[in-house]
Design a protein around this nucleic acid. Sequence first.
DNA 1: CGGGACACTTTAGTATTGCTAAAGTTAATT
DNA 2: AATTAACTTTAGCAATACTAAAGTGTCCCG
Lengths: 205, 205
Amino acid sequence: MSFDEREARVAGAGSPTQPPSATSLGRALRQRRKAIGKTMKEVAQEAGLSEGFISQIERGLSTPSLISLYNVANTLGISVEAFLPQGPQPAHSMVSRASERRGCSIDAEERVYQILQRGFPDARLNSCITHMPPGYVSELTRHEGEDFLYLIEGEMLYEVGGRDYLLKAGDTLHFPSSLPHRARNVGTVEARELWVGTTRIIPER
Amino acid sequence: MSFDEREARVAGAGSPTQPPSATSLGRALRQRRKAIGKTMKEVAQEAGLSEGFISQIERGLSTPSLISLYNVANTLGISVEAFLPQGPQPAHSMVSRASERRGCSIDAEERVYQILQRGFPDARLNSCITHMPPGYVSELTRHEGEDFLYLIEGEMLYEVGGRDYLLKAGDTLHFPSSLPHRARNVGTVEARELWVGTTRIIPER
DNA sequence: CGGGACACTTTAGTATTGCTAAAGTTAATT
DNA sequence: AATTAACTTTAGCAATACTAAAGTGTCCCG
């Protein structure tokens, strides 16, 4: 029984979200690898696998074992979770659905903002999810209000008021926007940051 | 080469976080299964595997394939990611490190708050990460200010101003705290929510 | 006490597949 | 034309994911 056949069987059994397929997994891996500009050989060596096998995986001809996937994911600076798809959902105001957000391309060269519409008129809080490619450096800014950051994924160096804060996924940072601040993606991964702030000024675009 | 032997090899090759081991994976799965009170037979049937195999997995004698793990994880209402351990990190003020937060036990019966200390005096933003077990229902409250929620993990039903909003991981919700609101973990997983708000009142405890 | 019923473990065995080594493509440089 | 680099393909084997079925221990019921 192939990976994909088995998938069909399982889907019929009523699994909550759509299971990963060999092809979708491979595509995601390749996309990711391209995004960070690595070669198969590099990935293969770092993950302790053969080049040919990486090729097979990416083309959906083979599926890596759990550890191998884990190692490959690490090499790509991404979590295994990233390859296991989420199902779609219905919409409603006030809510911003992860699955419905647009403006995000995984191998974007520049940062991508996903502004979360304010939940209601006269709101004082603003929020935005920003995707930043490895190497990305923002301008140094200062303004009124407060900034709260939650790093969803990646590794970022924030320079705030002359000090450096290295954040990893799940870390948060909170500071007065009046301090000059700048963000820098020092990881090898695209970073995703959730920003919540009191500043009305929503950046360009 | 066994799963664990391979692990040793890989760790030596400089992988960023410690890779999962067959035994730790099994332990996690069993813990989870016990936590939601399912039997091996049930899990096996729902995941389309044999009872004996589940036993083997949980005892670290065998490792499931990716799809199988995925299916088992779904059956247990948890994400695959939950079984892949994270590494520790250094600290600094203004920052709240995911790895250093305390007050969190994975099979807690009640919700657990991780209040993120305000980054600086006179801050207007407050934040908190809340862990809520499946079935958890909060009290209905209303107060001054604004609430912003980002659902890190799980599936929650928020009742705000008489309407229901079903959120999944990655979704956000933004509303005026003056509307009566209540949270309900309708998933089978422990849910983790990031809250950012202007309300000073940080809940009990 | 015998005998289910239940939750889990163990064993033995097979079909699958994860993975490698090596040769083959294709295309860009020089 | 020769070299290099990035990737694909093939052939093949050892490892293992998985099953069916029998085995253990424990609780419960008459």
